[in-house]
C-alpha cells in the first residue's frame, strides 16, 4: 500500500436540517486513481469541496499529508490549495478571459510567472496535452462542453499539483468525448504522476480506470476497495448500482 496523501476522518456536513455527510472516513493513496461513486445528491461534490477547503465540515478532520486542512484558515489554507487541482462539473472557466488567460491564471497567481513568452510556451504545451492546440484566443462561450472540460483540466493541472479532483468529468458528454476525458485522466495520473480523485456516474469507465472505488451511500463510505473487490461486494445497493450499469439493453 502506498502512502496516504488525503485522509478524511469522520466528516459530517449538513445544510440547514439536511444531513448530507454523516461520518465519512476515507484514505486516498498517493499516485492512484480513486473514484467516488454514489447516487445523485448523496454529497460526493460536497465531499470534494470539503477536501479542498472551500467548504468546512460541521465536524471531523481532513488531512493533506500531515497538515490538517480543516484546522486552517486564510493564507495557510491558500498555501495548501496550491497542491490541489480541481476540475469543476461545468469547468467553471472565467467567462471574461480567453482560454490562454484562463490557463495562465494559476501560473501567474500561484507561481508568479509574468514573462509572456514563458506563459505562452506553457499554455501551448498544456493545450497540446489536452489535444486542443490553437484555441488560445477563444472565449469559453465559443467552446463546446467537452472542450470546456478539457480546458478546465489544463487549468487544473497547470501548476502541476500533487492531487487533481475531478467532479463528474464526463457527465453530459457523448461516449466518445467521455472516453477522451477518461484517457486524459489516465494520462494525468500515469504520465504526470498526479493522484486523482474522481466523482463519476460512469460505472463502466470507473471499472476500467480506477485503482480504488469508494461507494458513498447515506452519508458514509459504505464500500472502499479495488474494482475486483467491488464486483464481489455483498452490499445490496452497490450490487444494484453495478448491475444496473452493466445490464444489457432489453430486446423483444
Amino acid at each position: 500500500m502506498g502512502s496516504i496523501i488525503v485522509k478524511v476522518e469522520n466528516v459530517v456536513k449538513s445544510f440547514k436540517d439536511v444531513k448530507v455527510l454523516t461520518g465519512v472516513n476515507l484514505e486516498i493513496e498517493e499516485g492512484k486513481i480513486t473514484t467516488i461513486i454514489g447516487k445523485s445528491g448523496t454529497g460526493k461534490s460536497v465531499l470534494l469541496k470539503n477536501i479542498i477547503g472551500i467548504m468546512k465540515p460541521d465536524s471531523g478532520k481532513i488531512f493533506f499529508k500531515d497538515s490538517e486542512i480543516t484546522a486552517m484558515t486564510g493564507i495557510e489554507l491558500l498555501a495548501v490549495r496550491k497542491n490541489i487541482g480541481y476540475l469543476f462539473q461545468d469547468a467553471a472557466l472565467f467567462d471574461f478571459m480567453t482560454v490562454a488567460e484562463n490557463i495562465s491564471f494559476p501560473l501567474v497567481e500561484q507561481l508568479g510567472i509574468e514573462k509572456q513568452s514563458e506563459l505562452k510556451e506553457k499554455v501551448e504545451k498544456l493545450l497540446d496535452l489536452i489535444e486542443l492546440p490553437g484555441i488560445e484566443n477563444k472565449f469559453p462561450s465559443e467552446l463546446s462542453g467537452g472542450m470546456r472540460k478539457r480546458v478546465g483540466l489544463a487549468r487544473a493541472i497547470a501548476v502541476e499539483p500533487k492531487i487533481v479532483l475531478f467532479d463528474e468529468p464526463t457527465t453530459g458528454l457523448d461516449p466518445i468525448l467521455a472516453e477522451s476525458i477518461d484517457k486524459l485522466i489516465e494520462k494525468v495520473n500515469k504520465d504526470l504522476n498526479m493522484t486523482c480523485i474522481v466523482i463519476s456516474h460512469d460505472i463502466a469507465s470507473t471499472f476500467r480506470r480506477a485503482d480504488k472505488i469508494a461507494f458513498l451511500y447515506e452519508g458514509t463510505i459504505q464500500f472502499f476497495g479495488s474494482p475486483e473487490e467491488a464486483l464481489k461486494s455483498k452490499h445490496a445497493v452497490l450490487k444494484q448500482f453495478i448491475s444496473n450499469s452493466f445490464r444489457p439493453l432489453e430486446t423483444e
Binding site: K49, L78, R81, F94, P106, Q110, R155, V159
Partner: peptide, 13 residues
C-alpha cells in the same frame, strides 16, 4: 457558475 469557487481552489482570494 462556480467561478468564485474555482478561484479559491487555485489559491486566489
Amino acid at each position: 457558475t462556480e467561478q468564485i469557487d474555482a478561484m479559491e481552489t487555485m489559491a486566489v482570494s
